[in-house]
């Protein structure tokens, strides 16, 4: 699973990320491995606190300092380990190699600088020789690429003068300005209305085709995953519980958590006012995580109860096992489809 291959743009191997808190060290990402293929989109899906955003920040080495620490693992971007890379190498990779799109466009943009200044800065930081005029012109260009009407006017405006959808387009323009090979989008449409979300997803897909980039799409929205991703990673409580192609995950889910997620989405074709399927219980806190399969206490599997009481649950970490080509699932019968 984790051998390097030239078709991979990114390979994450055994990543462990922890935070120092008043209550001691808490592990937010616990041994995560996956790969992103060139030109493809990998989705990371999971609920709040599952570690999907921390995984993204770890890849970019943008963890809050000094609390956040990568304790173990490798992040190989085109074969180069970012975990071990010195700070100045990271500056060059961020933006030019890997771009990042954040959820809240208002906090990702600086409110006291014009759109053009913020975009120009991206060009000027990475191309020392570029003139201000040239950077400004390129910014106008980039804004028109992401579909902002009258970009030559918008470029001179401040973030608060734009609507939420327009701001997110600016954030995308900044992330893509240097034509990175990989873009990490952390809930890029969650703060937007559905019709604007549709515009942004459409935009990202057409830019991806034109610029041949890879995308890591982090979201809790399974609809967005199904529409945009080639491969899917499902995370629960800091670990990957299942991964595979988008078809394997949606049509042949094997982990009971994946099934639970898929069943609890309200679908337009469901009968009205029918009871929705739910996952019983709730996500465990980071302080109370067992070594074994973390979904087991919520699993509807008949043997889940006895597993939770067993020594195995307290001491043995289940591996991921490949059950069909490229489809991996946590190797513990109590959390698997029965």
């Amino acid at each position: 699973m984790t051998s390097r291959d030239d078709s991979d743009i990114l390979l994450v191997r055994d990543l462990v990320t922890a935070f120092d808190t008043d209550e001691g060290q808490l592990t937010a990402v616990d041994g995560v491995s996956f790969r992103v293929k060139r030109g493809k989109t990998l989705g990371i899906v999971g609920e709040s606190g599952c570690g999907k955003s921390v995984t993204a920040l770890s890849i970019m080495r943008l963890l809050p300092y000094p609390m956040g620490k990568i304790l173990n693992g490798e992040v190989l971007f085109e074969g180069r380990d970012l975990v071990a890379a010195p700070a100045d190498a990271l500056y060059r990779i961020r933006g030019a190699g890997i771009g990042m799109i954040f959820q809240e466009p208002m906090t990702a943009l600086n409110p006291v600088h014009r759109i053009g200044e913020q975009l120009s800065e991206v060009y000027q930081l990475h191309h020392k020789s570029i003139s201000r005029k040239e950077a400004w012109d390129r910014s106008v260009d980039m804004l028109s690429k992401v579909g902002i009407p009258s970009p030559e006017i918008r470029v001179g405006e401040y973030p608060h003068q734009l609507s939420g959808g327009m701001r997110q387009r600016v954030v995308i323009a900044m992330a893509l300005a240097l034509e990175p090979k990989l873009v990490i989008a952390d809930e890029p449409t969650t703060a937007l209305d559905v019709t604007i979300q549709a515009q942004i997803l459409e935009l990202m897909q057409s830019l991806q085709r034109r610029m041949r980039m890879s995308i890591i799409m982090i979201t809790h929205n399974l609809g967005v995953i199904a529409e945009t991703c080639d491969e899917v990673v499902v995370m629960y409580a800091g670990r990957i519980v299942e991964m595979g192609s988008v078809y394997q995950i949606f049509e042949n889910p094997q982990h009971l958590y994946t099934c639970g997620l898929l069943n609890s989405i309200p679908r337009l074709e469901n009968p009205r006012k029918s009871r929705m399927q739910t996952i019983r219980g709730f996500v465990p806190g980071l302080r109370e995580l067992p070594v074994g399969a973390r979904f087991a206490p919520r699993s509807p599997h008949p043997e889940a109860r006895s597993y939770v009481d067993s020594d195995r649950y307290r001491t043995v970490r289940p591996d991921l096992v490949e059950i069909e080509d490229g489809h991996w699932v946590e190797d513990e019968p109590c959390v698997r489809v029965f």
């Binding site: 559905v194 604007i196 609809g223 199904a226 049509e251 337009l268």
Partner: peptide, 25 residues
């Protein structure tokens, strides 16, 4: 119609035919 078509469908084989509205509200 645009609102309904904009809902991403959780089924990878049904690529929804999105109606993309012009501009913002």
């Amino acid at each position: 119609k645009a609102l309904i078509s904009a809902i991403p469908i959780p089924d990878p084989r049904k690529k929804s035919e999105r109606i993309i509205l012009k501009g913002d509200v």
